[in-house]
Protein backbone atom coordinates (compact mmCIF):
# COMPACT_ATOMS: atom_id res chain seq x y z
CA UNK A 1 0.00 0.00 0.00
CA UNK A 2 1.39 3.40 -1.00
CA UNK A 3 1.75 5.80 1.92
CA UNK A 4 -0.05 9.11 1.48
CA UNK A 5 1.52 10.89 4.43
CA UNK A 6 5.11 11.19 5.61
CA UNK A 7 6.18 8.65 8.18
CA UNK A 8 9.04 6.53 9.33
CA UNK A 9 10.33 3.04 8.75
CA UNK A 10 12.99 1.15 10.69
CA UNK A 11 15.93 -0.47 8.86
CA UNK A 12 18.13 -2.61 11.08
CA UNK A 13 16.67 -0.84 14.11
CA UNK A 14 17.45 2.62 12.70
CA UNK A 15 14.46 4.92 12.34
CA UNK A 16 14.31 6.49 8.88
CA UNK A 17 11.86 9.08 7.60
CA UNK A 18 10.22 8.77 4.21
CA UNK A 19 7.99 10.89 2.03
CA UNK A 20 4.95 9.61 0.17
CA UNK A 21 5.90 7.64 -2.94
CA UNK A 22 9.39 6.77 -1.80
CA UNK A 23 10.59 3.21 -2.00
CA UNK A 24 12.50 1.58 0.82
CA UNK A 25 15.67 2.08 -1.27
CA UNK A 26 15.02 5.79 -1.82
CA UNK A 27 14.25 6.38 1.84
CA UNK A 28 17.32 4.42 2.92
CA UNK A 29 19.71 6.23 0.57
CA UNK A 30 18.26 9.61 1.53
CA UNK A 31 18.97 8.77 5.16
CA UNK A 32 22.53 7.62 4.40
CA UNK A 33 21.74 3.93 4.80
CA UNK A 34 23.29 1.82 2.05
CA UNK A 35 21.46 -1.18 0.70
CA UNK A 36 23.59 -3.09 -1.88
CA UNK A 37 22.29 -2.71 -5.43
CA UNK A 38 23.33 -2.91 -9.08
CA UNK A 39 20.25 -2.13 -11.17
CA UNK A 40 19.04 0.86 -9.17
CA UNK A 41 20.03 4.28 -10.50
CA UNK A 42 18.60 7.54 -9.14
CA UNK A 43 16.21 9.12 -11.60
CA UNK A 44 15.42 5.95 -13.55
CA UNK A 45 12.35 3.84 -12.92
CA UNK A 46 13.34 0.97 -10.63
CA UNK A 47 13.05 -2.51 -12.08
CA UNK A 48 13.95 -4.98 -9.34
CA UNK A 49 16.12 -6.96 -11.74
CA UNK A 50 19.31 -7.72 -9.89
CA UNK A 51 17.78 -8.73 -6.53
CA UNK A 52 20.85 -7.51 -4.67
CA UNK A 53 18.68 -5.12 -2.64
CA UNK A 54 16.58 -7.89 -1.19
CA UNK A 55 15.49 -7.07 2.37
CA UNK A 56 13.14 -8.72 4.87
CA UNK A 57 10.01 -7.10 6.23
CA UNK A 58 7.73 -9.14 8.39
CA UNK A 59 7.97 -12.64 6.99
CA UNK A 60 8.49 -11.47 3.40
CA UNK A 61 11.60 -10.93 1.29
CA UNK A 62 11.22 -7.95 -1.02
CA UNK A 63 13.39 -5.91 -3.38
CA UNK A 64 13.96 -2.57 -1.64
CA UNK A 65 14.17 -0.66 -4.93
CA UNK A 66 10.58 -1.45 -5.97
CA UNK A 67 8.84 -1.79 -2.61
CA UNK A 68 7.12 1.34 -1.31
CA UNK A 69 7.97 2.48 2.16
CA UNK A 70 5.05 2.05 4.56
CA UNK A 71 4.87 3.71 7.95
CA UNK A 72 5.96 1.48 10.74
CA UNK A 73 7.74 -1.09 8.57
CA UNK A 74 10.41 -3.10 10.39
CA UNK A 75 13.09 -3.95 7.80
CA UNK A 76 16.15 -6.16 8.08
CA UNK A 77 18.92 -5.54 5.53
CA UNK A 78 22.45 -5.83 6.86
CA UNK A 79 22.16 -9.34 8.30
CA UNK A 80 24.52 -12.29 7.80
CA UNK A 81 21.78 -14.29 6.07
CA UNK A 82 20.87 -11.55 3.60
CA UNK A 83 24.49 -10.72 2.87
CA UNK A 84 25.16 -14.41 2.25
CA UNK A 85 22.28 -14.44 -0.23
CA UNK A 86 23.64 -11.29 -1.88
CA UNK A 87 27.06 -12.90 -2.14
CA UNK A 88 25.53 -15.93 -3.83
CA UNK A 89 23.70 -13.72 -6.31
CA UNK A 90 26.94 -11.85 -7.03
CA UNK A 91 28.79 -15.11 -7.55
CA UNK A 92 26.10 -16.24 -9.99
CA UNK A 93 26.44 -12.98 -11.91
CA UNK A 94 30.19 -13.46 -12.12
CA UNK A 95 30.06 -16.99 -13.50
CA UNK A 96 27.18 -16.31 -15.87
CA UNK A 97 29.23 -13.70 -17.76
CA UNK A 98 32.88 -13.37 -18.70
CA UNK A 99 33.96 -11.09 -15.89
CA UNK A 100 37.73 -11.34 -16.16
CA UNK A 101 38.61 -8.49 -13.80
CA UNK A 102 42.42 -8.70 -14.21
CA UNK A 103 42.32 -7.48 -17.80
CA UNK A 104 38.90 -5.81 -18.01
CA UNK A 105 39.03 -2.11 -18.79
CA UNK A 106 36.22 -1.49 -16.30
CA UNK A 107 38.23 -2.81 -13.38
CA UNK A 108 38.38 -0.27 -10.57
CA UNK A 109 35.29 1.44 -11.95
CA UNK A 110 33.02 -1.62 -11.98
CA UNK A 111 30.06 -1.86 -9.62
CA UNK A 112 29.93 -5.64 -9.82
CA UNK A 113 33.59 -5.89 -8.82
CA UNK A 114 33.15 -3.29 -6.09
CA UNK A 115 30.10 -5.06 -4.76
CA UNK A 116 32.01 -8.33 -4.62
CA UNK A 117 34.65 -6.60 -2.52
CA UNK A 118 31.94 -5.02 -0.35
CA UNK A 119 30.38 -8.42 0.31
CA UNK A 120 33.71 -10.10 0.96
CA UNK A 121 33.29 -12.48 -1.96
CA UNK A 122 36.41 -14.63 -2.12
CA UNK A 123 35.68 -16.88 -5.09
CA UNK A 124 33.16 -17.65 -7.79
CA UNK A 125 31.93 -20.79 -6.02
CA UNK A 126 29.96 -21.90 -9.08
CA UNK A 127 31.47 -23.26 -12.31
CA UNK A 128 32.06 -20.67 -15.01
CA UNK A 129 29.63 -20.65 -17.94
CA UNK A 130 32.31 -19.33 -20.31
CA UNK A 131 29.51 -18.26 -22.59
CA UNK A 132 30.12 -16.68 -25.97
CA UNK A 133 27.91 -13.71 -26.77
CA UNK A 134 28.21 -11.35 -29.69
CA UNK A 135 30.51 -8.37 -29.29
CA UNK A 136 29.31 -5.31 -31.21
CA UNK A 137 32.11 -2.88 -32.09
CA UNK A 138 30.34 -1.44 -35.11
CA UNK A 139 29.74 1.98 -33.56
CA UNK A 140 32.66 4.39 -33.95
CA UNK A 141 32.49 5.53 -30.32
CA UNK A 142 30.77 2.80 -28.33
CA UNK A 143 31.57 -0.87 -27.68
CA UNK A 144 28.93 -3.40 -26.63
CA UNK A 145 30.39 -6.57 -25.10
CA UNK A 146 27.41 -8.76 -24.31
CA UNK A 147 29.61 -11.30 -22.55
CA UNK A 148 29.84 -8.85 -19.65
CA UNK A 149 26.16 -7.89 -19.57
CA UNK A 150 24.38 -8.66 -16.27
CA UNK A 151 20.92 -7.87 -17.70
CA UNK A 152 20.37 -5.10 -15.15
CA UNK A 153 18.29 -3.23 -17.71
CA UNK A 154 19.82 0.15 -16.83
CA UNK A 155 20.79 0.92 -20.45
CA UNK A 156 17.26 0.01 -21.55
CA UNK A 157 15.68 2.42 -19.08
CA UNK A 158 18.31 5.14 -19.59
CA UNK A 159 17.80 5.11 -23.33
CA UNK A 160 14.03 5.16 -23.01
CA UNK A 161 13.59 7.58 -20.10
CA UNK A 162 16.64 9.87 -20.16
CA UNK A 163 17.73 9.80 -23.81
CA UNK A 164 14.26 9.32 -25.35
CA UNK A 165 15.70 6.89 -27.92
CA UNK A 166 14.69 3.36 -26.94
CA UNK A 167 17.91 1.86 -28.29
CA UNK A 168 18.08 -1.25 -26.09
CA UNK A 169 15.80 -4.10 -25.04
CA UNK A 170 16.17 -7.43 -23.29
CA UNK A 171 15.12 -10.35 -25.47
CA UNK A 172 14.91 -14.07 -24.77
CA UNK A 173 14.18 -15.87 -21.52
CA UNK A 174 16.19 -17.54 -18.79
CA UNK A 175 19.74 -18.32 -19.81
CA UNK A 176 18.92 -17.17 -23.34
CA UNK A 177 18.10 -13.63 -22.20
CA UNK A 178 20.29 -11.10 -23.95
CA UNK A 179 20.59 -7.43 -24.80
CA UNK A 180 19.32 -6.44 -28.24
CA UNK A 181 19.79 -3.24 -30.17
CA UNK A 182 16.86 -1.47 -31.78
CA UNK A 183 18.21 -0.83 -35.28
CA UNK A 184 17.56 -2.28 -38.74
CA UNK A 185 20.72 -4.38 -38.63
CA UNK A 186 20.67 -5.00 -34.90
CA UNK A 187 24.04 -3.26 -34.75
CA UNK A 188 24.89 -0.22 -32.61
CA UNK A 189 26.26 1.61 -35.64
CA UNK A 190 22.77 1.72 -37.14
CA UNK A 191 21.08 2.81 -33.92
CA UNK A 192 20.44 6.31 -32.62
CA UNK A 193 22.79 6.00 -29.66
CA UNK A 194 25.49 8.64 -29.11
CA UNK A 195 28.48 8.62 -26.79
CA UNK A 196 26.94 11.48 -24.81
CA UNK A 197 23.79 9.48 -24.01
CA UNK A 198 23.20 8.25 -20.48
CA UNK A 199 22.68 4.79 -21.97
CA UNK A 200 26.27 4.82 -23.19
CA UNK A 201 27.73 5.50 -19.77
CA UNK A 202 25.29 4.09 -17.22
CA UNK A 203 26.40 0.45 -17.51
CA UNK A 204 27.56 -0.70 -14.06
CA UNK A 205 29.91 -3.29 -15.60
CA UNK A 206 32.05 -3.37 -18.74
CA UNK A 207 29.29 -4.29 -21.19
CA UNK A 208 28.79 -0.85 -22.72
CA UNK A 209 31.95 1.22 -22.89
CA UNK A 210 33.15 4.31 -24.67
CA UNK A 211 35.78 3.10 -27.13
CA UNK A 212 39.50 3.70 -26.63
CA UNK A 213 39.04 5.14 -23.14
CA UNK A 214 40.08 2.05 -21.18
CA UNK A 215 42.95 2.27 -18.68
CA UNK A 216 43.20 6.06 -19.04
CA UNK A 217 42.68 6.51 -15.31
CA UNK A 218 45.71 5.40 -13.30
CA UNK A 219 45.36 2.78 -10.62
CA UNK A 220 44.76 4.65 -7.38
CA UNK A 221 42.53 7.24 -9.00
CA UNK A 222 39.71 5.01 -10.27
CA UNK A 223 36.26 5.32 -8.72
CA UNK A 224 36.53 2.42 -6.30
CA UNK A 225 40.18 3.08 -5.50
CA UNK A 226 39.04 6.31 -3.88
CA UNK A 227 35.64 5.42 -2.44
CA UNK A 228 33.71 2.32 -1.49
CA UNK A 229 30.61 1.29 -3.36
CA UNK A 230 28.64 2.23 -0.26
CA UNK A 231 29.97 5.77 -0.45
CA UNK A 232 29.43 6.06 -4.20
CA UNK A 233 25.92 4.62 -3.90
CA UNK A 234 24.98 7.23 -1.35
CA UNK A 235 26.71 9.99 -3.34
CA UNK A 236 24.80 9.10 -6.52
CA UNK A 237 21.58 9.72 -4.62
CA UNK A 238 22.81 13.07 -3.31
CA UNK A 239 24.00 14.13 -6.77
CA UNK A 240 20.62 13.33 -8.28
CA UNK A 241 18.84 15.23 -5.53
CA UNK A 242 21.06 18.26 -6.16
CA UNK A 243 20.41 18.04 -9.92
CA UNK A 244 16.69 18.06 -9.26
Amino acid sequence: MMATTPGTIRIDNQEIPFTPGQTIMDAALAAGVYIPHLCHYPGLTPSGNCRLCIVETGNRSVAACITPAVAGQEIRSNTPELNAARTTITQMLFVEGNHICPSCEKTGNCKLQALAYHLGMLDDHFPQFYQRRELDASHPDILLDRSRCILCDLCVRASREADNKNVFAIAGRGTNAHLTVNSPSGKLADSAIAATDLAATVCPVGAIMIKEQGYQTPIGQRIYDRRTIRETGLQEHIDKKNDD
Binding site: P102, E105, L135, A137, G214, Y215
Partner: peptide, 14 residues
Protein backbone atom coordinates in the same frame (compact mmCIF):
# COMPACT_ATOMS: atom_id res chain seq x y z
CA UNK B 1 41.21 -12.51 -31.30
CA UNK B 2 37.98 -10.54 -31.31
CA UNK B 3 39.05 -8.30 -28.42
CA UNK B 4 39.51 -4.52 -28.85
CA UNK B 5 43.12 -3.49 -29.42
CA UNK B 6 43.30 -1.16 -26.40
CA UNK B 7 42.69 -4.14 -24.11
CA UNK B 8 45.58 -6.10 -25.55
CA UNK B 9 48.50 -4.80 -23.44
CA UNK B 10 46.61 -5.70 -20.27
CA UNK B 11 45.52 -9.14 -21.42
CA UNK B 12 48.91 -10.21 -22.73
CA UNK B 13 50.81 -8.95 -19.69
CA UNK B 14 49.09 -11.81 -17.88
Amino acid sequence: QGRPYWEVPFIVQR
